[in-house]
Amino acid sequence: MIEVKNVFKTFFVTHEVRALVDVSTKIAAAEVIVVIGPSGSGKSTLLRCINKLETANKGRIYIDGVDILDPKTDINKVRAEVGMVFQSFNLFPHKTVFENITLAQTVVRKRSKEEAAAKAVALLEKVGIPEKADVYPDQLSGGQQQRVAIARALAMDPKVMLFDEPTSALDPEMIGEVLDVMKNLAREGMTMVVVTHEMGFAREVADRVIFMDEGAIVEVGTPEHFFTNPTHDRTKLFLSQILRP
């Protein structure tokens, strides 16, 4: 489904920052991958490279066999198949919840108004806020906004969903409702790549967990492996810090 091959990404802010260093991984269809790691470890960059919000400097990234770093590839077509959910929701504040979900359907997928509307209603039902269709995003709680953002991404019928710390900007009591929606998605067989600090979610839903540090993948394994006997010292240290009661 997704293949990342020897990807390098370097930012030049004031000095050179090596965000990704020779990262390679394969993600199969219907697999749920959770990417963990300390801040600045390159996990968000990896996610953003997968739908080319950041362009990798070196290496190859294939989605469904399409080389997205090839200049001849129509990246908009690829992105339509790859849904993304952001830490700060990024809903369109000038459009209602309903319009947020129908906009890309009509503009990108060229669906009819009726078809897009039916889809939006069904998705709002799915994320549990059918009554909020006609309000503007700023009238919603953080959790509700993030659920709308998930619905907006799902409206494109993506093959993959990328989640970039979807619960990090939420108040604690709202994290659950978003995670529930994500768990349901995982159960339905959606291919998901989730960057998160929610270890409970990783343990419960993930097929594999990727631990990254300093731009490189340190360790990959099942949740059982990770939370019972991680191999690397760096992983142990991180988990002990994050799982401290």
């Binding site: 993304m84 809903l91 494109m156």
Partner: peptide, 13 residues
């Protein structure tokens, strides 16, 4: 905010 461009582009616009 940059996020608006990113969100719309990530939807394939």
């Amino acid at each position: 905010h940059r996020g608006q461009t990113e969100a719309s582009r990530s939807l394939g616009m």
